[in-house]
């Protein structure tokens, strides 16, 4: 039947269903590309100072204006995504790997191991995640690597809890029982039957946590726990421009705007992924 529906109608239906998600995905892809190819896109060296041209408003020469040291804000914004996005992606990957390992081990094996792991996760969840991240950075020391570890560590319980709840459900599915009765090992069952089936909700969760990680990395850089001062970084730029909000609002405005757009686009993308990967929502939409 699907072959009888014209392509244009299918595109329209797809757009109606995923319009916000498409906009979010395109926006995020655009930001990612700009960040990856920052050196090609930025018109000036993001560190180059021009003291005579401080606080210049947006113009054809400096699209976003210049900052307190006469540096081109557009070039700094373009380069400024690298620390935050690399820290956020790495943190999500770390927490995903650690959280899934803990969740799958606890949920599949059960017993005292499950209780011990989940109580540990409860303790971690009892701290507000940003506070936990600050505590970890304060202990490990200032730096982007430590910010990444801190954010990743703070998000581990979210993935562990989710993975465990999925595993508990999947472990009693008939196909798992069948595999077990055929003599499949635990590793085989987890790898071939449980992990593939738990991926959709995990991917949705990962996209949501990416937005959280971007916000957290921006916040930690804002309070000076991440990149070294002077480094182009969205959070640091907002912090440096904060006191200029009344006199040169363009200095904190553009990096702040980019953080907002990035977080929003990731959230929209995550919503679309959820709509697409959740069978119930997919049925409602078609």
């Amino acid at each position: 039947m699907q072959g009888l529906i014209p392509t244009s109608a299918r595109i329209r239906a797809f757009w109606r269903r995923y319009d916000i998600a498409v906009v979010g995905s395109v926006a995020f892809a655009f930001i990612l590309l700009i960040t990856i190819f920052a050196s090609l896109v930025s018109p000036y060296d993001p560190m180059a100072r021009n003291i005579k041209n401080r606080f210049a408003p947006p113009s054809s020469e400096n699209a976003f204006g210049t900052d307190q040291l006469g540096r081109d804000i557009f070039s700094r914004v373009v380069h400024g995504g690298r620390p935050i996005l690399s820290a956020s992606f790495s943190a999500v990957l770390f927490s995903l790997a650690a959280g899934m390992t803990i969740g799958v081990a606890g949920g599949y094996l059960g017993g005292p191991l499950d209780s011990a792991l989940m109580r540990l996760m409860d303790v971690m969840l009892s701290f507000p995640s940003i506070l936990l991240a600050i505590l970890i950075v304060a202990t490990l020391g200032v730096g982007l690597l430590n910010v990444t570890i801190a954010i990743g560590f703070a998000m581990v319980p979210v993935f562990a809890r989710l993975a465990r709840s999925i595993v508990i459900t999947l472990a009693y599915e008939e196909y798992v029982a069948a595999a077990r009765s055929l003599g499949a090992s635990d590793i085989h069952i987890i790898w071939n039957h449980i992990l593939p089936n738990m991926l959709p909700p995990i991917i949705v969760q990962a996209s949501a946590m990416l937005a959280v990680a971007i916000g957290a990395a921006s916040a930690l850089n804002f309070i000076g726990l991440g990149v070294e001062p002077g480094t182009p970084d969205w959070g640091m730029m907002v912090a440096d421009g904060q006191r200029l909000i009344f006199d040169a609002p363009h200095v904190p405005l553009f990096p702040g705007l980019v953080i907002t757009i990035t977080v929003l686009s990731v959230n929209y993308m995550g919503d679309g992924l959820r709509d697409h990967l959740d069978p119930k929502l997919r049925r409602q939409g078609t």
Binding site: Q68, F246, D247
Partner: peptide, 8 residues
């Protein structure tokens, strides 16, 4: 207050 505010 920020020194940058002085001119304004």
């Amino acid at each position: 207050a920020p020194f940058t505010s002085v001119p304004r």
